[in-house]
Structures are given as structure tokens and as C-alpha cells.
Simulated assay, not measured.
Amino acid sequence: MDHNHAKIIIKGSPITKSNFKLSNVHGRSILPYNSGKYHDRYAIYEEEIAYQARLQNPGVVIMESLIAILKVYYKSKKRHPDTTNIPKSIFDGIEKSGIIVNDAQIRRLVIEEYYDDKNPRFELELFGESSYCINYQIMEKSVSSTPINYSSPPNKKSLGIPKVKNNIANSNNFFCEICHKQVKKENIVSANKGKTILCKDCLKKLF
């Protein structure tokens, strides 16, 4: 068995941690596990990565610096997370699996984006730098292809136009997204830039 190499394939559309974090009253990020809500989805995904990574690589523990080749296959070309946000989500699960001891081991990372509407997934290969090296080359095409153009994200602040704040300050009706009870303004905690409302009682239960 090669203990300087591991390959992990996780089926399903890759997700990013940034969409699932909440912040507590001190500004510290938290990831709910058992709120019974949508935010639990990331924690479950991280556990699935850890379980499958260990199942696919029994006995492998890599402690040295690594080269990582990550191929992400999305279901849709139009709707998917930012690929630049994906690696942290994945490597948190890989670290939890015990195959690596610290995601800081990843010294070289190549990410490739693909699309597969029948079998969305990610494929990750890890190579120990004591045994493997990587070479890559950027070349100008002899015949240009049609460019894939992107537009600005809808939540990006326009130049010269102030961003409209959430209407929390002007509202008197608040409902906790976990217990669904109406909460007084002084007992709420907002997260995700005001999109998520929690009562202080439910927030304490998340720890």
C-alpha cells in the first residue's frame, strides 16, 4: 500500500462551508449540527467526506507536505458554488478522516472544474512531496475558442450605490429560525448578514 498517496471520490454536488456558517454574539463562527434546519447540511456533508475518505483509504495516514489535485464535477454549468470556496470545505472533512493531520500540509493545489448532470462529485488525489512532484504548463492556443464569460454576482455592491441594509432595524416582528417562536428585538441574534434570525436561547443550545 502506498502511504504517500490517497484518492477520494465523494458523490453528490459539492457544497461550500461559507453558505452554512452562523456567527454567535461574539462574532465567532459556528456550524450547527442538530438544529433540524438547513444549516445542518454542511456538518453532515463534512462527516460524509470523513467517513468515505477513510473507507476508501484504509490504514493511510500522510504526515508530510502534499500536492493536491482536485476535480470538481457540478450538476449544472449555471448554478453551483464558487469553485474557489470549495477546497476548505473538502479539506476540513479530509482532516477529520485522519488521512492527513493538518490541512496546512497542502502546499500545492490544482483545481479543475467540470460538469456531470448524471453524476456530480469531487475527486481528490493527494501526493506526498517526498515521492511525487508536479509540472504544469500554460500555452497559448493556436486557435482561440469561444470565451466563457461571467457577470458580477447579484450580491456585489455596485460602484457609487450604497448597499441597502437589512430591514431588521425597522421591524418589530422576529421569529427564530430554529424554534419558530416570536422573539423580542433585544433577545435576537442575527447572522449571515441579517438573513438569519436566532433567539439567544437557541443559540446557547448550539454549543
Results as ranks from 00 to 15, higher is better:
133 C>S: 10
170 N>R: 12
35 S>T: 13
104 A>R: 13
183 V>C: 04
38 Y>K: 13
126 L>Q: 14
88 K>M: 11
77 K>I: 08
142 S>P: 00
10 I>V: 15
173 N>W: 04
54 R>N: 09
102 N>R: 08
108 R>G: 01
61 V>K: 13
70 L>S: 09
106 I>G: 08
166 N>G: 11
114 Y>W: 02
65 S>A: 15
66 L>H: 12
196 T>W: 08
68 A>H: 09
173 N>D: 14
128 G>Y: 05
153 P>W: 00
84 T>N: 06
127 F>D: 02
179 C>G: 12
76 S>K: 09
83 T>H: 01
155 N>Y: 07
113 E>G: 02
70 L>V: 05
183 V>N: 06
37 K>C: 12
103 D>G: 00
183 V>I: 15
165 K>W: 00
126 L>I: 13
185 K>W: 01
99 I>D: 11
173 N>I: 14
80 H>K: 07
38 Y>F: 12
51 Y>V: 01
63 M>G: 05
11 K>T: 11
126 L>H: 12
109 L>A: 08
48 E>W: 03
164 V>P: 04
191 A>Q: 14
153 P>Y: 06
156 K>N: 02
56 Q>C: 04
46 E>Y: 05
97 S>I: 03
82 D>L: 03
44 I>P: 00
2 D>L: 07
172 N>F: 01
15 I>F: 01
199 C>R: 10
120 P>G: 05
68 A>Q: 14
72 V>C: 07
180 H>E: 13
123 E>L: 09
124 L>D: 14
175 F>G: 01
144 S>E: 05
121 R>D: 03
183 V>S: 06
38 Y>G: 00
82 D>P: 00
146 T>I: 05
13 S>V: 04
135 N>V: 10
72 V>L: 05
16 T>Y: 00
180 H>W: 08
135 N>E: 09
191 A>T: 14
136 Y>W: 12
124 L>N: 13
86 I>Y: 02
46 E>N: 15
133 C>E: 06
119 N>V: 08
133 C>T: 09
103 D>M: 13
73 Y>F: 06
3 H>D: 09
187 N>A: 11
63 M>C: 03
40 D>Y: 04
124 L>F: 04
78 K>H: 12
27 G>F: 01
